[in-house]
Design a protein around this nucleic acid. Structure first.
Lengths: 157, 157
DNA sequence: CTAAATAGGTAGAATTTTCTACCTTATACT
DNA sequence: AGTATAAGGTAGAAAATTCTACCTATTTAG
Protein backbone atom coordinates (compact mmCIF):
# COMPACT_ATOMS: atom_id res chain seq x y z
CA UNK A 1 0.00 0.00 0.00
CA UNK A 2 1.22 3.46 -0.88
CA UNK A 3 0.46 4.91 2.49
CA UNK A 4 3.06 2.85 4.32
CA UNK A 5 5.73 3.52 1.78
CA UNK A 6 5.10 7.21 2.10
CA UNK A 7 6.73 7.13 5.49
CA UNK A 8 10.22 6.59 4.29
CA UNK A 9 10.45 9.22 1.64
CA UNK A 10 11.25 12.86 2.14
CA UNK A 11 8.67 14.18 -0.25
CA UNK A 12 6.03 13.34 2.28
CA UNK A 13 7.29 16.17 4.44
CA UNK A 14 6.32 18.65 1.80
CA UNK A 15 3.02 20.35 2.36
CA UNK A 16 2.49 20.78 -1.36
CA UNK A 17 2.86 17.06 -1.87
CA UNK A 18 0.59 16.21 1.02
CA UNK A 19 -2.14 18.45 -0.27
CA UNK A 20 -1.74 17.13 -3.74
CA UNK A 21 -1.86 13.60 -2.53
CA UNK A 22 -5.00 14.25 -0.54
CA UNK A 23 -6.47 16.10 -3.45
CA UNK A 24 -6.04 13.15 -5.76
CA UNK A 25 -7.26 10.84 -3.07
CA UNK A 26 -10.33 12.96 -2.70
CA UNK A 27 -11.01 12.86 -6.39
CA UNK A 28 -10.77 9.10 -6.50
CA UNK A 29 -13.04 8.92 -3.51
CA UNK A 30 -15.68 11.01 -5.21
CA UNK A 31 -15.72 8.66 -8.14
CA UNK A 32 -15.86 5.56 -5.98
CA UNK A 33 -18.55 7.04 -3.78
CA UNK A 34 -20.60 7.95 -6.77
CA UNK A 35 -20.37 4.46 -8.19
CA UNK A 36 -21.34 2.79 -4.97
CA UNK A 37 -24.03 4.95 -3.50
CA UNK A 38 -25.43 7.23 -6.09
CA UNK A 39 -27.82 4.78 -7.62
CA UNK A 40 -29.60 7.73 -9.14
CA UNK A 41 -26.81 8.27 -11.65
CA UNK A 42 -25.72 11.68 -10.50
CA UNK A 43 -22.16 12.84 -10.12
CA UNK A 44 -20.76 14.60 -7.08
CA UNK A 45 -20.40 17.77 -9.11
CA UNK A 46 -24.01 17.62 -10.07
CA UNK A 47 -25.00 17.09 -6.47
CA UNK A 48 -22.85 20.01 -5.39
CA UNK A 49 -24.62 22.16 -7.94
CA UNK A 50 -28.02 21.04 -6.69
CA UNK A 51 -26.95 21.91 -3.16
CA UNK A 52 -25.75 25.32 -4.24
CA UNK A 53 -28.83 26.14 -6.28
CA UNK A 54 -30.99 24.97 -3.42
CA UNK A 55 -29.32 27.41 -1.05
CA UNK A 56 -29.20 30.23 -3.56
CA UNK A 57 -31.87 29.84 -6.20
CA UNK A 58 -30.63 32.83 -8.17
CA UNK A 59 -27.00 31.87 -8.36
CA UNK A 60 -25.50 32.43 -11.80
CA UNK A 61 -23.53 29.91 -13.72
CA UNK A 62 -20.40 31.99 -13.41
CA UNK A 63 -20.80 32.19 -9.64
CA UNK A 64 -21.28 28.44 -9.52
CA UNK A 65 -18.07 28.03 -11.43
CA UNK A 66 -16.24 30.25 -8.97
CA UNK A 67 -17.50 28.31 -5.99
CA UNK A 68 -16.50 25.05 -7.52
CA UNK A 69 -13.29 26.41 -8.93
CA UNK A 70 -14.00 25.16 -12.39
CA UNK A 71 -14.27 27.01 -15.66
CA UNK A 72 -17.64 28.49 -16.48
CA UNK A 73 -17.68 26.66 -19.80
CA UNK A 74 -17.33 23.41 -17.97
CA UNK A 75 -20.07 24.25 -15.50
CA UNK A 76 -22.31 25.24 -18.38
CA UNK A 77 -21.84 21.78 -19.84
CA UNK A 78 -22.63 20.11 -16.56
CA UNK A 79 -25.76 22.21 -16.28
CA UNK A 80 -26.85 21.17 -19.76
CA UNK A 81 -26.35 17.53 -18.90
CA UNK A 82 -28.33 18.07 -15.74
CA UNK A 83 -31.16 19.49 -17.77
CA UNK A 84 -31.03 16.50 -20.11
CA UNK A 85 -31.24 14.24 -17.09
CA UNK A 86 -34.24 16.20 -15.90
CA UNK A 87 -32.63 17.41 -12.69
CA UNK A 88 -33.06 21.07 -13.47
CA UNK A 89 -34.85 23.30 -15.93
CA UNK A 90 -32.83 26.10 -17.51
CA UNK A 91 -34.69 29.30 -18.21
CA UNK A 92 -33.21 32.31 -19.92
CA UNK A 93 -34.09 35.59 -18.24
CA UNK A 94 -34.17 38.21 -20.99
CA UNK A 95 -33.85 41.45 -19.11
CA UNK A 96 -30.86 40.31 -17.10
CA UNK A 97 -28.90 38.27 -19.60
CA UNK A 98 -28.72 35.34 -17.22
CA UNK A 99 -30.06 31.83 -17.15
CA UNK A 100 -31.98 30.70 -14.12
CA UNK A 101 -31.59 27.07 -13.14
CA UNK A 102 -34.66 25.66 -11.48
CA UNK A 103 -34.57 22.36 -9.63
CA UNK A 104 -37.22 19.95 -10.89
CA UNK A 105 -39.25 17.48 -8.86
CA UNK A 106 -36.85 14.75 -9.86
CA UNK A 107 -33.87 16.94 -9.03
CA UNK A 108 -35.36 17.68 -5.67
CA UNK A 109 -35.85 14.02 -4.84
CA UNK A 110 -32.26 13.31 -5.67
CA UNK A 111 -31.15 16.35 -3.74
CA UNK A 112 -32.95 15.03 -0.67
CA UNK A 113 -31.18 11.69 -1.00
CA UNK A 114 -27.88 13.43 -1.58
CA UNK A 115 -28.35 15.55 1.49
CA UNK A 116 -28.82 12.37 3.45
CA UNK A 117 -25.55 10.98 2.13
CA UNK A 118 -23.86 14.26 2.93
CA UNK A 119 -25.24 14.25 6.45
CA UNK A 120 -23.87 10.78 6.86
CA UNK A 121 -20.41 11.96 5.94
CA UNK A 122 -20.76 14.92 8.22
CA UNK A 123 -21.75 12.67 11.06
CA UNK A 124 -18.66 10.60 10.50
CA UNK A 125 -16.66 13.79 10.33
CA UNK A 126 -17.94 14.90 13.70
CA UNK A 127 -17.05 11.54 15.15
CA UNK A 128 -13.48 11.93 14.03
CA UNK A 129 -12.90 15.65 14.46
CA UNK A 130 -13.86 17.84 17.36
CA UNK A 131 -15.41 21.17 16.46
CA UNK A 132 -12.24 22.89 17.45
CA UNK A 133 -10.09 20.64 15.32
CA UNK A 134 -12.38 21.19 12.41
CA UNK A 135 -12.13 24.94 12.70
CA UNK A 136 -8.41 24.70 12.85
CA UNK A 137 -8.34 22.41 9.87
CA UNK A 138 -10.35 24.94 7.87
CA UNK A 139 -8.01 27.65 9.01
CA UNK A 140 -5.02 25.68 7.81
CA UNK A 141 -6.60 25.06 4.45
CA UNK A 142 -7.39 28.74 4.09
CA UNK A 143 -3.86 29.63 5.05
CA UNK A 144 -2.55 27.19 2.53
CA UNK A 145 -4.59 28.78 -0.23
CA UNK A 146 -3.30 32.16 0.83
CA UNK A 147 0.21 30.79 0.64
CA UNK A 148 -0.33 29.66 -2.92
CA UNK A 149 -1.85 33.01 -3.80
CA UNK A 150 1.26 34.72 -2.54
CA UNK A 151 3.32 32.84 -5.10
CA UNK A 152 1.19 33.20 -8.20
CA UNK A 153 -2.26 34.53 -8.75
CA UNK A 154 -4.68 31.63 -9.01
CA UNK A 155 -7.65 32.17 -11.19
CA UNK A 156 -10.15 30.45 -13.38
CA UNK A 157 -11.37 31.44 -16.79
CA UNK B 1 -14.20 37.18 -5.46
CA UNK B 2 -15.40 33.74 -4.51
CA UNK B 3 -13.63 33.68 -1.20
CA UNK B 4 -15.71 36.43 0.35
CA UNK B 5 -18.98 34.99 -0.86
CA UNK B 6 -18.09 31.68 0.63
CA UNK B 7 -18.62 33.10 4.05
CA UNK B 8 -22.35 33.35 3.87
CA UNK B 9 -23.18 29.94 2.57
CA UNK B 10 -23.59 26.82 4.63
CA UNK B 11 -21.70 24.55 2.30
CA UNK B 12 -18.50 26.14 3.44
CA UNK B 13 -18.95 24.42 6.77
CA UNK B 14 -18.63 21.07 5.11
CA UNK B 15 -15.21 19.52 5.30
CA UNK B 16 -15.75 17.68 2.04
CA UNK B 17 -16.47 20.93 0.27
CA UNK B 18 -13.49 22.67 1.83
CA UNK B 19 -11.14 19.95 0.77
CA UNK B 20 -12.60 19.88 -2.67
CA UNK B 21 -12.32 23.59 -3.00
CA UNK B 22 -8.71 23.55 -1.88
CA UNK B 23 -8.03 20.65 -4.16
CA UNK B 24 -9.27 22.52 -7.19
CA UNK B 25 -7.47 25.61 -6.05
CA UNK B 26 -4.32 23.61 -5.80
CA UNK B 27 -4.72 22.26 -9.28
CA UNK B 28 -5.22 25.71 -10.74
CA UNK B 29 -2.20 26.87 -8.82
CA UNK B 30 -0.05 24.16 -10.28
CA UNK B 31 -1.02 25.20 -13.74
CA UNK B 32 -0.44 28.88 -13.07
CA UNK B 33 2.86 28.19 -11.36
CA UNK B 34 4.02 26.10 -14.23
CA UNK B 35 3.15 28.79 -16.73
CA UNK B 36 4.92 31.50 -14.83
CA UNK B 37 8.05 29.93 -13.49
CA UNK B 38 8.77 26.74 -15.30
CA UNK B 39 10.44 28.30 -18.27
CA UNK B 40 11.89 24.91 -18.98
CA UNK B 41 8.55 23.60 -20.16
CA UNK B 42 8.07 20.98 -17.53
CA UNK B 43 4.84 20.22 -15.72
CA UNK B 44 4.49 19.83 -11.97
CA UNK B 45 3.76 16.16 -12.45
CA UNK B 46 6.92 15.73 -14.40
CA UNK B 47 8.87 17.54 -11.74
CA UNK B 48 7.32 15.38 -9.03
CA UNK B 49 8.40 12.33 -10.98
CA UNK B 50 11.93 13.65 -11.30
CA UNK B 51 11.99 14.24 -7.55
CA UNK B 52 10.75 10.75 -6.87
CA UNK B 53 13.15 9.05 -9.24
CA UNK B 54 15.96 11.10 -7.79
CA UNK B 55 15.19 9.83 -4.30
CA UNK B 56 14.53 6.28 -5.40
CA UNK B 57 16.31 5.50 -8.63
CA UNK B 58 14.74 2.05 -8.88
CA UNK B 59 11.15 3.08 -8.35
CA UNK B 60 8.76 1.34 -10.72
CA UNK B 61 6.18 3.05 -12.81
CA UNK B 62 3.40 1.42 -10.83
CA UNK B 63 4.88 2.65 -7.57
CA UNK B 64 5.14 6.13 -9.02
CA UNK B 65 1.50 5.94 -9.91
CA UNK B 66 0.60 4.93 -6.39
CA UNK B 67 2.54 7.80 -4.88
CA UNK B 68 0.92 10.27 -7.16
CA UNK B 69 -2.46 8.67 -6.95
CA UNK B 70 -2.85 8.46 -10.66
CA UNK B 71 -3.42 5.48 -12.93
CA UNK B 72 -0.34 3.62 -14.04
CA UNK B 73 -1.35 4.02 -17.66
CA UNK B 74 -1.36 7.75 -17.20
CA UNK B 75 2.02 7.78 -15.52
CA UNK B 76 3.36 5.64 -18.33
CA UNK B 77 2.29 8.27 -20.78
CA UNK B 78 3.88 11.04 -18.77
CA UNK B 79 7.11 9.04 -18.63
CA UNK B 80 7.07 8.62 -22.40
CA UNK B 81 6.59 12.33 -22.87
CA UNK B 82 9.44 12.94 -20.46
CA UNK B 83 11.64 10.70 -22.54
CA UNK B 84 10.64 12.59 -25.68
CA UNK B 85 11.58 15.80 -23.94
CA UNK B 86 14.90 14.28 -23.03
CA UNK B 87 14.39 14.47 -19.28
CA UNK B 88 14.80 10.77 -18.73
CA UNK B 89 15.91 7.68 -20.55
CA UNK B 90 13.73 4.60 -20.30
CA UNK B 91 15.49 1.29 -20.25
CA UNK B 92 13.75 -2.05 -20.20
CA UNK B 93 15.28 -4.52 -17.78
CA UNK B 94 14.68 -7.95 -19.23
CA UNK B 95 15.09 -10.22 -16.27
CA UNK B 96 12.79 -8.22 -14.05
CA UNK B 97 10.05 -7.16 -16.45
CA UNK B 98 10.41 -3.57 -15.38
CA UNK B 99 11.51 -0.37 -17.02
CA UNK B 100 14.15 1.70 -15.34
CA UNK B 101 13.85 5.44 -15.73
CA UNK B 102 17.18 7.19 -15.68
CA UNK B 103 17.43 10.95 -15.28
CA UNK B 104 19.45 12.56 -18.06
CA UNK B 105 21.79 15.51 -17.79
CA UNK B 106 19.04 17.78 -19.02
CA UNK B 107 16.60 16.23 -16.60
CA UNK B 108 19.02 16.75 -13.79
CA UNK B 109 19.51 20.41 -14.59
CA UNK B 110 15.80 20.95 -14.54
CA UNK B 111 15.49 18.94 -11.37
CA UNK B 112 18.01 21.23 -9.70
CA UNK B 113 16.02 24.26 -10.73
CA UNK B 114 12.80 22.62 -9.63
CA UNK B 115 14.26 21.79 -6.26
CA UNK B 116 15.08 25.46 -5.87
CA UNK B 117 11.48 26.40 -6.62
CA UNK B 118 10.31 23.78 -4.19
CA UNK B 119 12.61 25.06 -1.50
CA UNK B 120 11.23 28.48 -2.05
CA UNK B 121 7.73 27.25 -1.43
CA UNK B 122 8.89 25.38 1.62
CA UNK B 123 10.51 28.49 2.96
CA UNK B 124 7.24 30.35 2.55
CA UNK B 125 5.48 27.46 4.20
CA UNK B 126 7.75 27.68 7.21
CA UNK B 127 7.11 31.37 7.45
CA UNK B 128 3.39 30.78 7.63
CA UNK B 129 3.21 27.55 9.61
CA UNK B 130 5.07 26.57 12.73
CA UNK B 131 6.48 23.09 12.79
CA UNK B 132 3.81 22.07 15.23
CA UNK B 133 1.04 23.44 13.08
CA UNK B 134 2.43 21.69 10.08
CA UNK B 135 2.49 18.36 11.84
CA UNK B 136 -1.05 18.85 12.94
CA UNK B 137 -2.09 19.82 9.44
CA UNK B 138 -0.58 16.61 8.09
CA UNK B 139 -2.33 14.67 10.81
CA UNK B 140 -5.65 16.20 9.84
CA UNK B 141 -5.13 15.39 6.19
CA UNK B 142 -4.27 11.82 7.08
CA UNK B 143 -7.33 11.57 9.24
CA UNK B 144 -9.45 12.93 6.47
CA UNK B 145 -8.19 10.29 4.08
CA UNK B 146 -8.94 7.67 6.68
CA UNK B 147 -12.42 9.06 6.99
CA UNK B 148 -12.98 8.71 3.28
CA UNK B 149 -11.59 5.19 3.35
CA UNK B 150 -14.12 4.27 5.99
CA UNK B 151 -16.92 5.16 3.61
CA UNK B 152 -15.75 3.52 0.42
CA UNK B 153 -12.53 1.88 -0.55
CA UNK B 154 -10.46 4.33 -2.58
CA UNK B 155 -8.20 2.81 -5.13
CA UNK B 156 -6.52 3.41 -8.42
CA UNK B 157 -6.26 1.12 -11.37
C1' DC C 1 -25.63 59.87 -25.14
C1' DT C 2 -22.07 56.94 -26.61
C1' DA C 3 -17.97 54.20 -26.44
C1' DA C 4 -15.35 51.11 -23.69
C1' DA C 5 -15.14 47.80 -20.32
C1' DT C 6 -17.27 44.15 -17.87
C1' DA C 7 -20.15 40.04 -16.85
C1' DG C 8 -23.08 36.02 -18.26
C1' DG C 9 -23.06 32.58 -21.42
C1' DT C 10 -22.00 29.10 -25.43
C1' DA C 11 -19.38 26.39 -28.97
C1' DG C 12 -15.72 23.59 -30.41
C1' DA C 13 -11.06 22.26 -30.34
C1' DA C 14 -7.41 20.63 -27.53
C1' DT C 15 -5.63 18.57 -23.59
C1' DT C 16 -5.67 15.75 -19.56
C1' DT C 17 -7.12 11.90 -17.11
C1' DT C 18 -9.36 7.61 -16.59
C1' DC C 19 -10.92 3.10 -17.91
C1' DT C 20 -10.68 -1.43 -20.03
C1' DA C 21 -8.53 -4.94 -21.98
C1' DC C 22 -4.63 -7.11 -23.01
C1' DC C 23 0.43 -8.83 -23.01
C1' DT C 24 4.51 -10.34 -20.48
C1' DT C 25 7.07 -11.91 -16.67
C1' DA C 26 7.60 -13.15 -11.82
C1' DT C 27 5.96 -15.41 -7.74
C1' DA C 28 3.29 -18.73 -4.97
C1' DC C 29 1.38 -23.12 -4.42
C1' DT C 30 0.54 -27.97 -4.81
C1' DA D 1 7.52 -29.09 -13.06
C1' DG D 2 2.99 -26.93 -13.91
C1' DT D 3 -0.49 -23.88 -13.14
C1' DA D 4 -2.76 -20.00 -10.95
C1' DT D 5 -2.22 -15.48 -9.41
C1' DA D 6 -0.24 -11.23 -9.06
C1' DA D 7 2.69 -7.34 -10.72
C1' DG D 8 4.81 -4.30 -14.36
C1' DG D 9 3.52 -2.29 -18.64
C1' DT D 10 1.16 -0.63 -22.93
C1' DA D 11 -2.57 0.65 -26.29
C1' DG D 12 -6.66 2.75 -27.50
C1' DA D 13 -11.17 4.33 -26.48
C1' DA D 14 -13.87 7.10 -23.48
C1' DA D 15 -14.70 10.67 -20.34
C1' DA D 16 -13.53 14.85 -17.92
C1' DT D 17 -11.56 19.33 -17.98
C1' DT D 18 -9.55 23.33 -19.92
C1' DC D 19 -8.74 26.83 -23.32
C1' DT D 20 -9.87 30.17 -26.83
C1' DA D 21 -12.74 32.75 -29.16
C1' DC D 22 -16.88 34.62 -29.68
C1' DC D 23 -21.77 36.59 -28.80
C1' DT D 24 -24.98 39.35 -26.11
C1' DA D 25 -26.41 42.40 -22.57
C1' DT D 26 -25.20 45.46 -18.85
C1' DT D 27 -22.68 48.82 -16.54
C1' DT D 28 -19.38 52.63 -16.30
C1' DA D 29 -16.97 56.73 -17.54
C1' DG D 30 -16.29 60.67 -20.23
Amino acid sequence: MAKKDLLDIKLENSLAFQIDYTSNFNKSFRRAFHKKFMNSNISMDELAILLLINIRPDITQTALARYMFKGKAHVGKILNIMEEKGLIKRKYIEHSNTTKNIITKKGNDILKQGQKDFKNIEKKTKDMFSLQELEQFFEYLKKYRKLLESIVEVKIK
